[in-house]
Design a protein around this nucleic acid. Sequence first.
DNA 1: GCCAACGTTGGC
DNA 2: GCCAACGTTGGC
Length: 160
Amino acid sequence: MSRSTRRYWLLKSEPTTFGIDDLAACPDQTTHWDGVRNYQARNFLRDRMQGGDQAFFYHSNCKEPGIVGTVEIVRAGYPDHTAFDPDSSYYDPKSTPENPRWFMVDVRLTERFPHTLTLAEIKRHGDRLEGLALLRRGNRLSVMPVAPAHWRFLLELARR
DNA sequence: GCCAACGTTGGC
DNA sequence: GCCAACGTTGGC
């Protein structure tokens, strides 16, 4: 059966916290995408992401913000256990195993771009990226959808 | 380090 | 339910 509903995403991470080098160093280049504490982003993780979806890995809050590679979603949304851990900086006592508030997915590294596709360059192509959430004013979402046409166009830019 | 934009909190 | 105060995000 074909999957007609594959979706594309963009995941932000601060490289000083967890960058693409860190993902590359993980066993099987796979890890939990934990620590998301925003409801809109949570809803995407919990309700919309599926195994087989693909996402851009975006470095934020750093010298050269931009897209640095791609990952595949290898496990759909499930409770973020870091919220249950009092020793975690992501601890949230309002989230319990019985009634989890925060969710995560598992991702596996699929591609590292030879160069960062910088936010500055993405902005230069804004006319081809109408509606891209990353370019919306004041955007702060750390998990956002990417339209298939935008995915293809950004991938082309990143690989050249 | 600055600061605009945004989300959350909590008093009322 | 309003909204001011506050904390966070994230580009520059």
